[in-house]
């Protein structure tokens, strides 16, 4: 625990000093994340102790610094680089029971969804899936409420990022860390075959 905190802090400072923590003008985002990550580490540590005594683990939401490639990908795909953390909400479990079907709900609860002020789109991207893109949702004022639920695959423990573009030109983001115990893809290597139903994967 004592070692972990300074390491995280150094990592964060280093990235900012070298400029790679801020490739697309995301200083505000990076600053927020640094503190969050430290907090997450503390809560995480407590959770680890709690886990030993089999107490249900409290919810942890942390968003470490965005990888550079992801920032570049988002800049190209969404045409925006100025993402501020907030407004968009990503609801996912901290620990997925199976990577094959992880419940996910994205929303911008405070958007009035009027012609003048509505959510244009929400985009979900993962950091360590074989293909990072998950879904892109497009809304209109007639959507009434920018809230979508789906079930997605997560190949392994990773960050899930969520970006929202508004009609007023602002861009918002959030991220969550989701632990996956069983790799989704590894378990689907052998596909079911109705004629010869010996198939498997691990456990």
């Amino acid at each position: 625990m004592k070692r972990l905190l300074p390491e995280l802090a150094t990592e964060h400072r280093g990235s900012e000093a070298e400029g790679c923590g801020e490739p697309f003008g995301m200083r505000r985002f990076a600053g927020l994340v640094g503190r969050r990550q430290a907090l997450g580490a503390i809560v995480g540590g407590t959770a680890a102790i709690a886990a030993l005594t089999a107490v249900p683990i409290p919810a942890i939401s942390s968003s470490p610094n965005m990888p550079e490639w992801l920032a570049a990908l988002i800049a190209v795909r969404l045409g925006s680089t100025e993402f501020v953390e907030g407004r968009v909400v990503l609801e996912m479990p901290d620990r997925a029971d199976t990577g094959l079907s992880v419940p996910m709900t994205v929303s911008v609860p405070d958007s009035p969804m009027t012609d003048a002020d509505h959510v244009r789109s929400i985009h979900v991207v993962t950091t360590r899936n074989p293909q990072p893109l998950v879904t892109d949702y497009y809304f209109t004022p007639a959507s009434g409420l920018a809230r979508v639920s789906q079930r997605i695959r997560l190949a392994r423990t990773q960050q899930v990022y969520c970006f929202a573009l508004m009609s007023d030109g602002t861009s918002w983001m959030t991220a969550r860390h989701v632990s996956v115990a069983l790799g989704a893809c590894a378990d689907e290597i052998f596909l079911p075959d109705a004629k010869q139903p010996v198939d498997g994967g691990t456990s």
């Binding site: 094959l100 992880v102 899936n129 074989p130 893109l133 879904t135 959507s143 979508v148 639920s149 789906q150």
Partner: peptide, 23 residues
């Protein structure tokens, strides 16, 4: 009138489920 659209990529689970809203 199209009120909602989604682009799905390969990470969407088998038997895709979606819940969304309309006015």
């Amino acid at each position: 009138k199209t009120v909602f659209g989604a682009d799905w990529h390969v990470a969407v689970s088998t038997n895709p489920y979606i819940s969304f809203h309309a006015l």
